[in-house]
Design a protein around this nucleic acid. Structure first.
Lengths: 342, 342
DNA sequence: TGTAGTTGATGTAACGTTTAACCAATAAAC
DNA sequence: GTTTATTGGTTAAACGTTACATCAACTACA
């Protein structure tokens, strides 16, 4: 009843050509003020909305972007609120710029055919590292991308990264400052060039700086999930006498860790200090509230959209700001406390 | 370099007409096995992918669905992991059926023009109630919708609802069973016909059943956010002597509540019992772990996709299963305990 | 008075598909 | 040996836009 009205109908009713209608819609070409308002009125009345498919067929642009996030488990997006905050930022940013966002999970051998298929204007890619097959395929697509948390070495890529090394350093330094000497890290997978790698580098730097020798046994490469954290807690039980603090490279794993410790009778921060990473929204509401490395995730999503759109539209002084490094800060809360000899 | 290959190129190289190529792609029409394989080979080689815009221009289908969720704050999706779990379910379901998902936040006066514009095949709508302007506009779009948590009275609509009344009843009954008699509820907005309304009805039924008189002062209509919960805790402080248990109609508000109580020196469950609603992933890991009304949010998202696609494709025995009511269950954990006279 | 420029508008090709209508050749039926 | 089906394929129109080329009518200018 209402979805069949096209530019042709408008033209017929307004007694002008479709070209004129098109011009009115796009504010291009030359058309008299009278005609403009006449056409616009009819457009209003008929609730005409130009067809996106027809448009993209013409100009090969879709005004669609996608946020691409790798699966961790098979076929399911990661159950980490971090992504939701990111997505919220992206959605908000996109909404300002009148583009829409497709949400896409990918696994290692994604072929990205949907990109061509839908003529996607650009991609916001989260956590895809340089040496992966997925990354190579992404490059061969030859479309605007903004890489988040990917730490690409090539400065030509548009990317937004946290200062992960600084984050790792900051958290560790904080614990050292509290008197802790045996500090474990729950890193997640330590791929060279990945976020966890850099955080770990920061951790090592802080240790060196304070003359604390590195103990490889203190690095737990468990999955950065809530369950991962929980499991590590069990293993820490046996190190009880040694480890007095843990630095988890994500808030969710810190949460799992704290709960796991609780379940084996260790309480935070009395028995063990814990520092997280990300500052997801309820870190400050949990009990104990979580000391963590703070980043503004929502803002990150918003910036990503802006960068992507600059790139797509060729606007923006993109030459300078290809690579954005977001600073981190330390949010000191209740989960970390001074070292006390037991 | 690689994105300009069209059906025409395939046709030229294979020495057949574009119609034949189209037939091969869609498995329609009559075409000899030889030709099929010849064409397919070339498609492979050239990495041809049919253009979605051209397709939808023809058949007015986009193979795109949207998940529509109302803003709470202005212009930003709600910071509640509940939505992320839902979105994860939807993405997973959609992926199985080769459709893609657009994520859309709306405010009260959304005009939904993007639906026509993009020829969206269908919508998964979360928490839009019957009497709202948005709902009316949605109806006038005349496209397949599945409504989640909307409790529409008209049985013709495709909808998935929780048995919210039962949830409200279950949680309250649990607290009563523990000996609590003065039980507050943190409801969120109590619009008639909304989820909170039904949960509240369940609460009232449980009270009646146990001969406990309703006290309107015990119903806190604060925002169902983590901050909302936190604020209510302050107000409860003054009721301290009265209230011995709180039932929050979302896990996030329960989290805020517990934290708020903690900050005014009340601990859960020693001083007050708290029950939540939703069972988001974090609830079982927090300290104390949260007694809550459990629903499988991810599954809800998956079911929604299936229902929507049945409706779109006209497949499915949709006549029977227009309206799905999902059962709830009680997950008893640590945040609720027996009533003790102080 | 002719030339040039401007304004407002039109006609039409093109984008990449799908599909209905048509057709030639071969096989089957009587 | 003519009709009738079936097989394998082609042609061309249509979907809703945009953009280029064209044009008629004025206005300005020398």
């Amino acid at each position: 009843m209402n979805n069949k009205v096209s530019i042709k109908d408008i033209a017929r009713i307004a007694n002008v050509s479709i070209a004129t209608v098109s011009n009115v819609i796009n504010g291009k070409g030359r058309v008299s003020p009278n005609t403009v308002s006449k056409v616009n009125k009819i457009i209003q009345e008929l609730q005409f909305v130009p067809s996106a498919s027809a448009r993209s067929l013409k100009d090969m642009k879709s005004h669609l972007i996608a946020i691409v996030v790798p699966f961790l488990e098979k076929g399911m997006l990661q159950d980490n609120p971090f992504y939701w905050e990111l997505v919220r930022g992206v959605e908000g940013g996109a909404r300002h710029h009148e583009v829409q966002v497709i949400l896409l999970g990918i696994d290692e051998n994604e072929d990205f055919s949907f990109v061509k298929q839908r003529h996607l204007d650009g991609l916001i890619v989260v956590g895809v590292f340089e040496h992966t097959a997925a990354f190579q395929k992404l490059l061969s697509l030859n479309i605007p991308c903004v890489f988040l948390d990917s730490h690409l070495s090539n400065p030509d890529f548009h990317q937004i990264d946290l200062d992960d090394e600084a984050g790792g350093y900051l958290g560790t330094k904080h614990l050292i400052g509290l008197g802790h000497k045996v500090i474990g890290v729950l890193t997640g997978k330590l791929e060279e060039g990945g976020v966890n790698y850099f955080r770990h580098q920061g951790y090592l730097r802080a240790l060196r700086e304070s003359g604390i020798p590195e103990d490889p046994e203190l690095t737990f490469e468990e999955a950065p999930s809530i369950q991962g954290g929980y499991h590590v807690a069990q293993r820490i039980g046996s190190y009880k006498s040694k480890i007095s603090a843990m630095f988890a490279f994500s808030d969710v794993s810190a949460i799992g860790l704290i709960r796991g410790l609780h379940d084996i009778g260790l309480s935070v921060p009395a028995d063990l200090s814990v520092v997280g990473f990300d500052d997801i929204f309820y870190s400050q509401y949990m009990i104990p509230s979580l000391t963590t490395i703070r980043q503004d995730i929502v803002a990150k999503g918003q910036i990503a959209v802006t960068m992507l759109l600059d790139q797509i539209n060729g606007t923006g002084l993109s030459t300078d700001k290809r690579s954005v490094k977001i600073p981190v800060s330390l949010a000191v809360r209740q989960s970390s406390a001074s070292f006390k000899e037991i």
